[in-house]
Amino acid sequence: MTHLLELLVQTAARFGLNYGFLLDAYQRASLVNGALTSIALCAVTIVGSLAAGLLLASMLTSGRVWIARPARVFIEVTRNTPTLVQLYCAFLVLNMLLTQAIGTANPLTPFAWVVIVISLHKGAFHAEALRAGIEAVPAVTLEAASSLAFNSRQLLWNVQLPLALRFALPSLINNLIDLVKMTAVASAIAVGDITYASIMIWTQSDNVLELMILLLAFFGLLSFIVNCAGRALEARLRMPGYGH
């Protein structure tokens, strides 16, 4: 492994790129741990954002104003404010108030705050995609389900949402790709992701260009994996007669 790294460092040096930090065990471990943290952050926020989006979409299409109105207000506020500002407000304000209220027993770490903020932020976008999908379900399909004595809840969970997911999947995958890139804001509150690890390395060495290339490649690869998984899921869930 060390020999391979040395070979890669020497090859990069021929192009004027200094990746010598990869030969330092501490900096290499810091970068690897940062990459694993970023992957974990992506995995958890993908699940959290989809759950939030599903809940908000259900509220929007509930037909009850007292349920739909708060969801609409939340979505508009969330979509129209920057993620970084939301993260700062959550971590520097809400977290401080929570710490003052319960003391050092505050269970929410910086990692948890990033998960909450990004999940809710992208959940708002998922909700709009799912809402559009729910409203795109043909009326004849709903009439057929109603003739089987489905109540409104059964209609939503057994008919509308499964079809809405298929209609909304391209938009959801696009949102998830954006979510992967968005996790880089975690470094703003010192979460030890790959971006934060890179910043710590380039503050000690003059290799900003090399680390930026590494970051671009890392997030590009993660986004590509999410895109491929989404396309495979879209092909698997495709139904004849829908979406064509």
Score class of each variant (00 low, 15 high):
residue 203 T to P: 01
residue 139 A to F: 02
residue 9 V to Q: 03
residue 19 Y to N: 14
residue 17 L to P: 00
residue 33 N to T: 13
residue 10 Q to V: 02
residue 201 I to R: 06
residue 141 T to V: 15
residue 5 L to A: 02
residue 80 N to D: 05
residue 109 T to E: 06
residue 231 R to A: 02
residue 114 V to A: 14
residue 223 S to H: 00
residue 89 C to T: 09
residue 81 T to K: 00
residue 113 W to F: 13
residue 164 A to W: 15
residue 127 A to D: 12
residue 162 P to K: 08
residue 25 A to F: 03
residue 44 V to L: 15
residue 6 E to I: 01
residue 161 L to W: 13
residue 180 V to L: 03
residue 17 L to N: 02
residue 75 I to F: 08
residue 83 T to Q: 06
residue 233 L to E: 01
residue 46 I to M: 15
residue 242 Y to K: 03
residue 107 P to F: 11
residue 9 V to N: 03
residue 170 P to T: 06
residue 226 V to Q: 02
residue 165 L to P: 02
residue 186 A to P: 03
residue 152 S to V: 10
residue 176 L to Q: 15
residue 127 A to Q: 13
residue 38 S to L: 09
residue 204 Q to D: 05
residue 181 K to N: 13
residue 57 A to V: 10
residue 191 V to F: 06
residue 39 I to C: 12
residue 89 C to K: 01
residue 86 Q to T: 07
residue 223 S to L: 00
residue 22 L to V: 10
residue 176 L to E: 12
residue 214 L to S: 05
residue 220 G to A: 00
residue 93 V to S: 05
residue 205 S to L: 15
residue 37 T to H: 09
residue 133 G to Y: 12
residue 28 R to H: 05
residue 229 A to R: 00
residue 12 A to M: 12
residue 138 P to K: 06
residue 123 G to D: 04
residue 19 Y to S: 14
residue 63 G to A: 05
residue 211 L to S: 06
residue 116 I to S: 04
residue 147 S to K: 10
residue 112 A to W: 04
residue 243 G to P: 03
residue 102 I to F: 04
residue 173 I to H: 07
residue 222 L to D: 00
residue 117 V to T: 12
residue 20 G to Y: 08
residue 224 F to G: 00
residue 215 L to V: 02
residue 177 I to S: 05
residue 145 A to H: 13
residue 35 A to T: 13
residue 148 L to E: 10
residue 53 G to D: 01
residue 202 W to A: 04
residue 36 L to S: 13
residue 226 V to L: 02
residue 31 L to A: 05
residue 56 L to V: 09
residue 158 N to S: 15
residue 200 M to L: 09
residue 100 Q to R: 09
residue 67 I to E: 04
residue 64 R to F: 15
residue 60 L to R: 14
residue 22 L to W: 15
residue 109 T to D: 10
residue 148 L to Q: 14
residue 36 L to H: 10
residue 196 Y to M: 11
residue 139 A to V: 08
residue 54 L to Q: 00
residue 51 A to Q: 05
residue 22 L to K: 10
residue 223 S to E: 01
residue 59 M to Q: 01
residue 6 E to M: 02
residue 200 M to W: 00
residue 49 S to E: 03
residue 100 Q to C: 00
residue 13 A to V: 13
residue 149 A to N: 15
residue 137 V to E: 08
residue 161 L to M: 15
residue 181 K to A: 09
residue 242 Y to P: 01
residue 41 L to R: 05
residue 13 A to F: 14
residue 46 I to L: 15
residue 213 I to E: 02
residue 64 R to W: 15
residue 40 A to L: 10
residue 58 S to D: 10
residue 114 V to W: 11
residue 45 T to Q: 14
residue 172 L to S: 14
residue 234 E to S: 07
residue 97 L to G: 07
residue 11 T to H: 04
residue 204 Q to G: 01
residue 40 A to N: 09
residue 107 P to K: 13
residue 36 L to D: 11
residue 34 G to P: 03
residue 205 S to M: 12
residue 144 A to Q: 05
residue 3 H to W: 10
residue 108 L to D: 08
residue 184 A to S: 15
residue 23 L to P: 03
residue 126 H to D: 11
residue 145 A to L: 11
